[in-house]
């Protein structure tokens, strides 16, 4: 029976491992290409008033990431084509925010202006500071429309599974979320399906019960192991000094508890100027407090 319980507990834990996903670290690997505009004929302009192509990078993590020191390229055989300068505040991308690079082939205009453009571009890649580890890449389709950006958006497939896919966007969204449709919060969604809150009560209570029941099963077994050990030690005559010390409540402790309860119950307890304790009180020696000096000496 106990083996079954152990196996059951183990099974639940393994199952929980299996049904969970993986978490990513909060670093350069959180950076992703999010949107590009190859033919910017009449949309947004840079600080020089030019309609240039641009690349948008998204920090998908939950911490600020500095893209400075990384490399951007449109040619994977030359991964270190454009080195993003370090030490500039503009290269720090806050959590869940975006950074726009102008692909105009004019790096002299600032660190956010790349030394290549997007004409006839096939691939875009982002490498880490070593220039060897690929952080993210996209394959750019040959057909690119005027003033139409190509970006990453969540779409449902035929089976209804939602995936992030690259597609031509209806609206360009530089330095912002590609999906501008009204979003429903998970709370609102929950209420849509469960307006009375009973579903939430059942699910959430079950989760609370499961987690505490797991705790119960594990500690029932651990308790059984410890009790068995103590019994075994007793039958073999083995004296486990440490265990017995902590396993048994000493007479002084029981007496102190009984005394405290008695005082509390009889309501004769009051604010005392002394403390009843089972701790050893150490008193520094002084002739003034020494018992020897306070005792009367027998007459000679």
């Amino acid at each position: 029976m106990k083996r079954t319980i152990c196996a059951f507990t183990g099974g639940i834990i393994v199952l929980l491992f299996l049904v969970t996903g993986t978490a990513s670290a909060q670093n350069v690997s959180d950076l992703k290409f999010n949107e590009i505009l190859v033919h910017n004929d009449s949309l947004n302009v840079d600080a020089f008033g030019m309609h240039s192509s641009w690349i948008e990078i998204f920090n998908s993590g939950y911490n600020t990431v500095d893209i400075g020191g990384c490399y951007l390229t449109n040619d994977k055989s030359n991964p270190t084509k454009y080195w993003i300068p370090t030490g500039d505040p503009s290269t720090k991308i806050p959590a869940r925010c975006y950074l726009l690079f102008w692909a105009d082939g004019k790096p002299s205009r600032g660190i956010l202006h790349l030394n290549f453009d997007l004409n006839n571009v096939e691939t875009l890649a982002l490498y880490d500071a070593s220039g060897r580890m690929l952080v993210d890449e996209i394959t750019v389709p040959k057909t690119q429309y005027s003033n139409t950006s190509y970006g990453l958006i969540e779409k449902a497939n035929e089976q209804g599974e939602k995936n992030m896919v690259w597609t031509y966007l209806e609206k360009t969204t530089p330095a912002s979320d590609n999906d501008h449709s009204k979003k429903v919060s998970s709370g609102e969604q929950f209420v849509k399906y469960d307006p009375t809150g009973i579903g939430m009560a059942v699910i959430a209570l079950s989760v609370v019960f499961c987690s505490l029941a797991l705790l119960y099963i594990i500690f029932k077994n651990i308790g059984a192991i410890f009790t068995r050990k103590a019994k075994k030690a007793k039958t073999t005559g083995e004296v486990v000094v440490k265990e017995t010390k902590s396993d048994q409540i000493s007479g002084e402790v029981s007496a102190a508890i009984a005394m405290a309860l008695h005082l509390y119950e009889s309501e004769i307890h009051d604010d005392e100027n002394m403390v009843l304790t089972i701790k050893r009180i150490s008193r520094a020696y002084s002739p003034w407090s020494s018992k020897i000096y306070t005792l009367r000496k027998y007459p000679q």
């Binding site: 609370v208 505490l212 029941a213 500690f219 308790g223």
Partner: peptide, 8 residues
């Protein structure tokens, strides 16, 4: 340990 379930 069964007292833990009351807490739930």
């Amino acid at each position: 340990p069964k007292l833990v379930l009351i807490g739930a």
